Lab assay of single mutants.
Amino acid sequence: NQASVVANQLIPINTALTLVMMRSEVVTPVGIPADDIPRLVSMQVNRAVPLGTTLMPDMVKGYP
């Protein structure tokens, strides 16, 4: 099973992602692959992302 990117904390709308905000976890449904975490750094979320939420491609501005 492939690990996905999961919010490690509440991420407010328009926040630029940092490594501490994300963790990898095997979840269903599958979200953004954990391998993409380095690419996500400094990209902004377009909505508030609660703790434990799987990051989906449509939540991150400019992804992929």
Rank of each mutant, 00 (worst) to 15 (best):
N1G: 15
N1T: 15
N1P: 15
N1R: 03
N1Q: 13
Q2D: 15
Q2S: 15
Q2W: 14
Q2H: 14
Q2K: 06
Q2F: 13
Q2I: 11
A3P: 08
A3S: 09
A3G: 15
A3M: 13
A3Y: 15
A3W: 13
A3D: 14
S4M: 02
S4D: 00
S4I: 02
S4L: 02
S4E: 01
S4G: 05
S4Q: 02
V5E: 00
V5D: 01
V5K: 01
V5M: 02
V6G: 00
V6M: 04
V6F: 02
A7G: 03
A7Q: 01
N8C: 08
N8W: 06
N8I: 06
Q9G: 05
Q9C: 05
Q9L: 10
L10K: 07
L10H: 12
L10A: 12
L10S: 11
L10P: 10
L10N: 11
L10C: 15
L10D: 13
L10I: 11
I11N: 01
I11W: 00
I11F: 02
I11L: 09
I11V: 12
P12G: 07
P12K: 07
P12A: 08
P12L: 09
P12I: 04
P12Q: 09
P12S: 06
I13M: 11
I13L: 12
I13N: 14
I13Y: 11
I13G: 09
I13V: 14
I13A: 11
N14I: 03
N14P: 00
N14T: 05
N14R: 07
T15F: 07
T15I: 06
T15L: 04
T15V: 10
A16H: 13
A16C: 08
A16R: 07
A16Y: 13
A16V: 11
L17V: 03
L17R: 00
L17F: 02
L17C: 03
L17E: 00
T18H: 04
T18P: 00
T18C: 04
T18W: 03
L19Y: 12
L19E: 04
L19R: 10
L19N: 04
L19Q: 06
L19A: 06
V20E: 05
V20R: 10
V20T: 13
V20N: 11
V20F: 13
V20S: 14
V20G: 08
M21N: 06
M21T: 03
M21C: 03
M21R: 01
M21G: 03
M21H: 06
M21W: 02
M21S: 04
M22L: 13
M22H: 00
R23V: 05
R23F: 04
R23C: 04
R23Q: 04
R23N: 05
R23H: 04
S24V: 12
S24H: 14
S24R: 10
S24A: 13
S24K: 09
S24N: 09
S24E: 08
S24F: 06
S24L: 07
S24I: 13
E25M: 10
E25C: 06
E25F: 10
E25Y: 10
E25G: 10
E25H: 07
V26D: 15
V26F: 15
V26H: 10
V26T: 12
V26A: 12
V27E: 02
V27Q: 04
V27L: 05
V27K: 07
V27Y: 02
V27I: 05
V27A: 07
V27G: 03
T28L: 07
T28Q: 13
T28N: 13
T28V: 11
T28S: 10
T28H: 08
T28E: 15
T28K: 06
P29C: 05
P29V: 09
P29G: 03
P29A: 04
P29T: 06
P29K: 05
P29N: 05
P29D: 07
V30H: 13
V30C: 15
V30M: 14
V30R: 05
V30K: 07
V30W: 13
V30Y: 15
G31S: 02
G31K: 00
G31A: 03
G31R: 02
G31F: 02
G31Q: 02
G31W: 02
I32V: 10
I32E: 02
I32G: 01
I32T: 00
P33G: 06
P33K: 08
A34M: 06
A34G: 10
A34P: 05
A34C: 06
A34Q: 06
A34W: 08
A34T: 08
D35L: 10
D35V: 13
D35W: 07
D35T: 12
D35Q: 09
D35H: 11
D35Y: 12
D36P: 00
D36A: 14
D36E: 12
D36V: 10
D36Y: 12
D36Q: 14
D36T: 08
I37K: 06
I37R: 08
I37V: 05
I37S: 04
I37N: 01
I37L: 12
I37A: 09
I37W: 03
I37D: 00
I37E: 03
I37M: 14
P38A: 10
P38T: 12
P38Y: 12
P38C: 08
P38E: 08
P38W: 13
P38K: 10
R39V: 09
R39M: 11
R39E: 05
R39P: 03
R39A: 10
R39N: 11
R39Q: 09
R39T: 08
R39C: 12
L40A: 00
L40C: 03
L40E: 00
L40M: 06
L40W: 02
L40G: 00
L40Y: 03
L40T: 01
L40N: 01
V41I: 12
V41T: 06
V41N: 04
V41G: 01
V41C: 14
S42W: 12
S42V: 03
S42N: 07
S42A: 14
S42C: 13
S42R: 08
M43T: 04
M43Y: 14
M43F: 14
M43G: 03
M43I: 04
Q44H: 13
Q44V: 13
Q44N: 09
Q44D: 04
Q44P: 05
Q44K: 13
Q44L: 09
V45M: 06
V45A: 04
V45E: 00
V45K: 00
V45P: 02
V45T: 10
N46K: 11
N46R: 11
N46E: 08
N46Y: 15
R47T: 10
R47Q: 10
R47N: 05
R47W: 06
R47P: 02
R47C: 05
R47H: 10
A48R: 12
A48C: 14
A48M: 14
A48K: 07
A48Q: 14
A48P: 06
A48V: 12
V49Q: 02
V49W: 02
V49H: 01
V49C: 05
V49G: 02
V49I: 11
P50L: 15
P50V: 06
P50R: 09
P50H: 11
P50E: 15
P50K: 14
P50G: 11
P50I: 08
P50S: 11
L51Q: 14
L51P: 12
L51Y: 14
L51A: 11
L51F: 13
L51G: 09
G52N: 13
G52M: 04
G52A: 06
G52P: 00
G52L: 04
G52T: 03
G52Y: 05
T53N: 08
T53D: 08
T53G: 11
T53L: 11
T53R: 13
T53S: 13
T54F: 03
T54C: 04
T54P: 08
T54N: 01
T54R: 04
T54W: 03
L55N: 00
L55I: 11
L55Q: 00
L55E: 01
L55T: 01
L55A: 01
L55G: 00
M56R: 07
M56C: 08
M56N: 06
M56G: 05
M56Y: 09
M56Q: 12
M56H: 10
P57Y: 13
P57D: 05
P57I: 07
P57G: 09
P57R: 09
D58H: 11
D58I: 12
D58S: 13
D58T: 15
D58Y: 15
D58V: 08
D58E: 12
D58A: 10
D58P: 07
D58M: 12
M59Q: 04
M59H: 07
M59I: 05
M59T: 05
M59S: 05
M59Y: 08
M59F: 14
M59D: 12
V60M: 06
V60P: 02
V60H: 00
V60R: 01
V60D: 01
K61Q: 13
K61N: 11
K61D: 10
K61S: 12
K61I: 11
K61G: 06
K61F: 11
K61A: 13
K61H: 15
G62E: 13
G62N: 15
G62M: 08
G62T: 06
G62L: 11
G62W: 09
G62A: 11
Y63L: 06
Y63R: 05
Y63K: 04
Y63N: 05
Y63I: 04
Y63P: 04
Y63Q: 05
P64R: 12
P64A: 14
P64Q: 15
P64C: 15
P64G: 15
P64W: 05
P64H: 15
